[in-house]
Amino acid sequence: MNQTTPLSSLKAYIADGNFAPGDRLPPERVLTEALGLKRATLRRALDTLEQEGVIWRHVGKGTFLAEERPADAPMPWFDEVSRQLTPVKMMRARMSIEPAIAREAAVNASKEALARIDAAILGAEEAPDWETYEEFDDQLHHAIAEATDNPLLVALFRQLNGVQRAVAWNSVVRTTERPPRSHTSFAEHRAIADAIRNRDPNGAHDAMRRHIGSVSGRLFGEI
C-alpha cells in the first residue's frame, strides 16, 4: 500500500493544479492550508523539490516550477555533503563565506536591495514565533546575497543555504515562544545592514562574522 507523505502530497498538488513550467506556486500559507501541513513540514518538502530541481525560489518573488534545472540548483554532491556535514562544520563554512558576501553587498547594494534587507530585519523583529523569525532571517541572508548583484555569489549562497537546511539541527532547543526583544541577533542584523548602507565593506564583513560567531556561540559554544 502506498503511503501518503508530505512530499507526495505536494507533488500531487502541483500535478493536479496543472502548473506550467515557470508558473509561480501559491504562498506557503496557502499551501499549508491546502495540504493540511505545518509550515516546517511544508518547507522540508519544498526543500526536497528544490534539491531535485523541480522548483526554484527567488527571495521576495516566490517559488516557481522550474522550466529546466536552474544554474543554482543543488548539484549531485549535495546529498553526500549534507550527510557528512555536522552543524558545527556548517557554521564554520558560513563564517568563511557569508562575511565575504556581506563585503560585496556593501559595494554593490542598490536602494531596492537595501529596502529588501530592511524589510526582512523588521519582519524578524516582529515575528510572533520562532518559525516566522527563521523565515525572515532566511530572507535577510538571501537579500544580502542578492545585494551583491553577482549571480555567482547568489548561486553559491543558495547552495550553502540548501545544505544548511538539510543538516540535522537536533542541538537547537527553544525555551521561549518567540525571540525575546533582547535577542542579540536583532542588533547584529542592524549592524550588518548599517555597514552595507554606509558602503563600508570591511565593516559589513566584520559585522557578519560577529553575527555568525554569535549564533554559533549560542548553539555550540566557541568554534
Rank of each mutant, 00 (worst) to 15 (best):
S214D: 14
Y133T: 04
A145H: 05
E125W: 02
V167K: 08
A187C: 06
D149C: 12
A187V: 08
N202T: 14
K111A: 13
A143K: 03
E112V: 10
N150K: 11
W130N: 01
I144E: 00
G162P: 09
R210F: 01
A187W: 02
H189L: 08
R181Q: 11
G203I: 12
R165P: 03
L140H: 00
L140I: 01
A127V: 02
G162W: 08
W169P: 00
A127Q: 04
D118F: 08
A204Y: 14
H142R: 11
V167Q: 03
F136H: 10
V154D: 12
H142S: 14
I117L: 07
I196Y: 07
E177N: 12
A113D: 15
A115H: 06
L153A: 10
A155V: 08
E146H: 05
R209A: 12
D194T: 13
F157H: 15
I212L: 15
A187I: 03
E134W: 04
A193V: 04
S171L: 14
R174Y: 05
L122I: 09
A127H: 01
A145R: 02
E125R: 10
I121K: 00
I212K: 00
A113K: 09
A143E: 04
E125P: 00
V163H: 07
E177S: 13
Q139P: 02
R210P: 03
G162Y: 07
H141T: 13
N161W: 07
E131N: 13
D206R: 15
H183R: 00
A193L: 04
H183W: 08
T148Q: 09
E135C: 01
A155I: 07
I117A: 03
V167C: 06
K111S: 11
H211N: 13
R210N: 11
R158Q: 15
P180A: 11
A113Y: 05
A195C: 10
I196H: 03
F157L: 02
S214G: 11
I117M: 05
P180M: 08
L153E: 04
I196C: 12
A155H: 09
R174K: 14
R190K: 14
A204E: 11
T148V: 08
L153F: 06
A204I: 13
E112H: 09
E135F: 02
I117S: 02
A195F: 03
L160D: 00
A120Y: 01
A195Y: 07
A109S: 13
I121R: 00
D149M: 10
A187S: 14
A207Y: 05
W169E: 04
G123I: 04
R116N: 13
A143M: 06
G162I: 06
R181Y: 07
D149H: 15
R199G: 03
D149A: 14
H142K: 06
L153P: 09
H189N: 14
H141V: 10
A143W: 02
A204N: 14
L122F: 02
